[in-house]
Computed example of a mutant assay.
Amino acid sequence: MEQQPYNPLHGITLKTIVTELEAHFGFEELGQRIKIRCFTHDPSIKSSLKFLRKTPWARTKVEELYIRNRHDIKHSPQP
């Protein structure tokens, strides 16, 4: 496997990203921050992953949101 020491997403799966974003923001706020149907109409982790894996522009937006908020996500209290 190629080393990517400067890639902030290295070793983090899309499933982890979506799960942590949903836990931190909830689907309603995710849908407000990123206007894609997988977050606004009958959202689920599974349907979101399916859409994001096939839609590079949407995946990029989700990854960028995660990168911008990763410090807060990692340090927020878990229920």
Score class of each variant (00 low, 15 high):
residue 57 W to P: 03
residue 57 W to S: 11
residue 5 P to H: 15
residue 67 I to Y: 10
residue 44 S to Y: 06
residue 13 T to E: 13
residue 51 F to E: 00
residue 16 T to Q: 08
residue 13 T to P: 04
residue 22 E to R: 05
residue 32 Q to A: 04
residue 54 K to A: 03
residue 77 P to F: 05
residue 64 E to F: 09
residue 31 G to I: 12
residue 50 K to D: 13
residue 63 E to M: 14
residue 44 S to D: 02
residue 43 P to K: 08
residue 20 E to G: 00
residue 48 S to N: 03
residue 55 T to A: 08
residue 33 R to H: 02
residue 58 A to F: 08
residue 50 K to I: 12
residue 14 L to H: 11
residue 1 M to L: 06
residue 11 G to T: 10
residue 52 L to Y: 01
residue 34 I to Q: 04
residue 3 Q to F: 09
residue 72 D to R: 00
residue 8 P to Q: 13
residue 79 P to E: 02
residue 69 N to F: 04
residue 69 N to Q: 14
residue 18 V to W: 01
residue 7 N to K: 10
residue 14 L to T: 15
residue 68 R to K: 11
residue 47 S to A: 05
residue 74 K to N: 06
residue 43 P to W: 07
residue 32 Q to N: 05
residue 72 D to C: 00
residue 25 F to K: 07
residue 34 I to V: 15
residue 49 L to W: 06
residue 63 E to V: 06
residue 67 I to P: 03
residue 30 L to T: 07
residue 30 L to D: 04
residue 68 R to E: 14
residue 72 D to K: 09
residue 18 V to C: 01
residue 72 D to I: 03
residue 16 T to H: 09
residue 29 E to F: 02
residue 72 D to N: 02
residue 76 S to F: 07
residue 27 F to P: 03
residue 63 E to I: 11
residue 67 I to N: 08
residue 9 L to E: 04
residue 56 P to K: 11
residue 9 L to I: 09
residue 12 I to A: 09
residue 59 R to V: 07
residue 58 A to G: 13
residue 78 Q to E: 12
residue 7 N to Y: 13
residue 64 E to R: 09
residue 32 Q to P: 00
residue 69 N to G: 02
residue 76 S to A: 07
residue 39 F to C: 00
residue 12 I to R: 12
residue 35 K to R: 09
residue 27 F to C: 00
residue 33 R to E: 11
residue 6 Y to V: 11
residue 10 H to Q: 02
residue 40 T to H: 00
residue 55 T to M: 01
residue 42 D to R: 12
residue 30 L to V: 09
residue 51 F to A: 00
residue 75 H to Y: 14
residue 32 Q to Y: 01
residue 29 E to A: 05
residue 22 E to N: 05
residue 75 H to W: 13
residue 32 Q to K: 06
residue 35 K to M: 11
